[in-house]
């Protein structure tokens, strides 16, 4: 079977130890997480994890189900790249003397729609948002001009292309079911 890049989007209750529970399912299968982004979601008290990894669909599907099965996980779904919009953020710390001495570097920054967010006499910090490929291309260019001091990039954030609101639908359905059970029990 072919390995593909998959993105798993997970919604959990915002409680201590959740990240450990989620990542343990990958550890158990010796699946290596490529990137991971964790933050609050649009719903208060609900955390959102975006995990990307290379794998076969069968194993990605199984691990996603096992994650969703965890008591404090609300929803977990996996996507291929053509089913989502996704971005990463990168910061490049460049040597200011090299940047000032080489016009080509500032041209590269403009052409790649990167943004300068700090300049001082020692270093310049450039920020870029884009795909992994764009971010690494820019990195290579800076390296080739000998101006790179430090580099960091984030994991991906992603939203599905589908108009469906996975979390909203889940919460609505659960709420609805609970109400109907209560009414039934009356």
């Amino acid at each position: 079977m072919d390995k593909k890049l998959y993105t798993i989007i997970i919604y959990t209750e915002n409680i201590a130890g959740m990240l450990n529970q989620v990542t343990a399912e990958f550890t158990r299968r010796m699946m290596n997480i490529d990137t991971i982004t964790a933050s609050s979601s649009s719903v208060e008290g609900v955390h959102r994890y975006t995990i990307s990894l290379w794998g076969e669909e069968d194993s990605v599907q199984k691990v996603t189900k096992r994650i969703e099965k965890k008591v404090d996980v609300l929803k977990a779904d996996y996507y291929t790249d053509n089913e989502i919009f996704f971005q990463e953020v990168a910061l490049y710390k460049l040597s200011t003397p090299v940047v000032l001495g080489n016009d080509e570097v500032s041209r590269i920054i403009r052409h790649n729609t990167a943004r300068v967010i700090e300049v001082n006499s020692t270093y310049t910090v450039v920020e870029m948002t884009g795909s992994t490929e764009d971010i690494l291309n820019l990195y290579d260019k800076f390296v080739s001009h000998n101006c790179m001091l430090q580099f960091v990039k984030s994991g991906r954030v992603a939203v599905p292309r589908s108009a469906q609101d996975v979390l909203g639908d889940y919460l609505f359905n659960e709420d609805y079911k609970r109400k109907s059970i209560k009414e039934k029990n009356k």
Binding site: T12, V71, L74, L171, E174, K177
Partner: peptide
């Protein structure tokens, strides 16, 4: 009697 992230008896 319920945990919103947990569906013990799926329909």
């Amino acid at each position: 009697d319920n945990v919103r992230s947990y569906i013990p008896y799926p329909t």
